[in-house]
Simulated scan of single mutants.
Amino acid sequence: MSNITRRDPFDEFFRGFFVRPVEFGGAGDAAPPIRLDVKEDAEMYHIHAELPGVKKEDIHVQIDGPMVAISAERKQEKEVKEGERILRTERYFGQVSRSFQLSHDIDDVHATAKFSDGVLELSLPKKSTPQAKHLTVQ
Rank of each mutant, 00 (worst) to 15 (best):
S2E: 14
I4Q: 06
I4A: 08
I4V: 14
T5E: 11
T5P: 06
R6G: 02
R7F: 07
D8L: 10
D8E: 12
P9N: 01
P9D: 06
F10E: 06
F10L: 09
F13C: 04
R15H: 03
G16K: 04
F17G: 04
F17Q: 04
F18Y: 15
F18Q: 14
R20W: 05
R20Q: 12
P21G: 11
P21V: 06
P21T: 05
V22K: 05
V22N: 05
V22W: 12
E23A: 15
F24N: 05
G26K: 02
A27L: 08
G28V: 14
A31V: 07
P33E: 06
L36I: 11
L36C: 09
V38I: 15
V38R: 08
D41H: 05
D41P: 09
A42G: 00
E43D: 09
E43Q: 12
Y45H: 00
Y45I: 11
H46T: 07
H46E: 11
I47V: 15
I47D: 02
H48K: 14
H48F: 03
H48C: 02
A49E: 11
E50K: 12
E50N: 15
E50Q: 11
L51A: 11
L51V: 08
L51K: 03
P52C: 13
V54P: 07
V54T: 13
K56E: 15
E57Q: 13
E57H: 00
D58R: 02
D58A: 12
I63M: 15
D64P: 04
D64E: 14
G65N: 00
P66F: 00
V68Q: 09
V68I: 15
A69P: 00
I70Q: 00
S71T: 07
A72I: 03
R74L: 04
Q76L: 12
K81R: 14
E84N: 13
E84F: 12
E84H: 03
I86L: 15
L87Y: 11
T89V: 10
E90N: 15
E90T: 09
E90Q: 04
R91W: 09
R91L: 05
R91N: 08
Y92K: 08
Y92Q: 10
G94N: 08
G94T: 05
V96W: 01
S97M: 06
S99I: 00
S99W: 06
S99L: 02
S99H: 03
Q101C: 01
Q101L: 01
L102S: 06
L102Y: 02
L102W: 03
L102H: 10
H104D: 12
H104K: 02
D105R: 01
I106H: 10
I106W: 09
D107C: 08
D108H: 06
H110M: 12
H110K: 10
A111K: 02
A111R: 04
T112N: 01
K114T: 03
K114L: 02
F115M: 09
S116L: 10
G118Y: 04
V119G: 04
V119K: 07
V119S: 04
E121G: 00
L122Q: 09
P125Q: 03
P125W: 09
P125G: 03
K127T: 11
S128E: 14
S128L: 07
T129N: 05
P130N: 09
K133G: 01
K133S: 05
K133A: 04
H134M: 10
H134K: 10
L135T: 13
L135K: 05
V137A: 08
V137N: 03
V137F: 10
